[in-house]
């Protein structure tokens, strides 16, 4: 069972690295916001898998919090873009 957890954690880390790459190079700001969202989802999964693997599922509140307030960053960005309109390919 531990091998399964290890493989899943490793794959999630690679997925996180790929989304950091996307957030870093862009090129458009919509790529970046999607990358942040992807990274947050991967972190929620990472925290959950890690907590179950080490036997502390009572701390899932943290993953729950991310799942719940994940929208705030996107909403703040949408609000910013709404106030400062840009061309579609920026």
């Amino acid at each position: 069972m531990e091998t399964v957890y290890l493989i899943v954690l490793g794959l999630l880390l690679i997925a996180g690295l790929l989304s950091i790459w996307r957030a870093g190079i862009g090129p458009t700001r919509f790529d970046r916001i999607l990358a942040v969202n992807t990274f947050t989802s991967k972190s929620i999964l990472f925290i959950s898998v890690y907590l179950f693997a080490t036997g502390h599922p009572e701390y899932l509140d943290i993953a729950l919090l991310y799942a719940l307030v994940n929208y705030v960053t996107s909403l703040a960005l949408v609000n910013y873009l709404n106030r400062n309109p840009v061309s579609a390919n920026d």
């Binding site: 700001r29 990274f39 947050t40 972190s43 890690y50 991310y66 960005l77």
Partner: peptide, 25 residues
């Protein structure tokens, strides 16, 4: 290496999430 403020905000969000996961560990 990033100069754009918008990218900086998003990248520091990612940094904070990764840091939080480390605190859980």
């Amino acid at each position: 290496c990033t100069r754009s403020p918008l990218s900086l905000v998003l990248l520091s969000g990612i940094y904070s999430i990764a840091l939080c996961t480390l605190f859980v560990i």
